[in-house]
């Protein structure tokens, strides 16, 4: 039973607490580049998740055989292999999407998030934990991509996943689907996340304050006893 709890948190860590984009500020290039629409965001997220999970599995399986001097190169080779697979599958099955994402599918190879997880987690943990961690990070990334892509798509072309959600009277903000819109939207998302985090911290501090200080006197309770 004791092992179950950490396993769960290995997965949920990537969703918010260690969200690859919002908290670790990794994987910025694909995040900004492909989020013209929510659909592209999801596709990119899923492709990255697949590579991340596969690479983590392999790296975790062979972790004791990789000499530490050449570990980065080995990780990149594993990643590049899986990215080649994804690229060819996308070209064969989803040509439209493959064209829309363009060079950003091969660029998954140099996504710092994937290499980072190999170095920080998969190379030190058994496969089942590595897979869970990779899944959590992948889902966290996909969610962020979806939100960012969704915001840009709604404001930039009045649509979400291809269906119109805002009335015709709303003038689309062209800037949102331009490169500048990606930077601005993500900047505001970071600011909101910061504000939420700050609020949480304040609440936690208030809680500590209530516990240790008597509210009527504002004196530390512990000091009084001494």
């Amino acid at each position: 039973m004791k092992k179950q709890a950490p396993l769960g948190s290995v997965f949920t860590d990537g969703l918010w607490k260690n969200n690859p984009v919002m908290k670790q500020v990794l994987a910025m290039c694909p995040v900004l580049a492909v989020t013209v629409s929510a659909e592209n965001g999801i596709a990119m997220g899923l492709a990255t998740t697949f590579v991340l999970v596969s690479a983590s599995t392999i790296v975790s399986l062979v972790r004791s055989w990789i000499p530490s001097q050449v570990r980065i190169a080995s990780y990149i080779l594993v990643i590049a292999t899986f990215v080649t697979i994804v690229d060819y599958v996308m070209k064969a099955q989803f040509l439209e999407m493959s064209k829309a994402l363009g060079p950003f599918i091969p660029l998954i190879i140099v996504n710092c998030l994937i290499l980072g997880r190999q170095e920080a987690f998969a190379s030190k943990n058994p496969p089942h934990r590595a897979i869970l961690d990779a899944l959590g990070m992948g889902v966290g990334l996909t969610m962020t991509l979806f939100v960012l892509g969704g915001i840009r798509e709604i404001l930039g072309s009045r649509e979400l996943l291809g269906t119109q959600v805002l009335p015709d009277a709303f003038e689309p903000w062209i800037v949102m689907i331009l490169p500048a819109g990606a930077f601005l939207t993500l900047g505001f998302m970071f600011a909101v996340a910061n504000a939420v985090e700050k609020r949480k911290e304040d609440l936690a501090r208030e809680e500590v304050y209530r516990k240790h200080y008597r509210p009527d006197t504002l004196e530390p309770a512990a000091q009084k006893e001494a």
Partner: peptide, 9 residues
């Protein structure tokens, strides 16, 4: 980071 991204925008 946020203000940096806004400047980049």
């Amino acid at each position: 980071v946020p203000i940096t991204l806004v400047v980049a925008g």
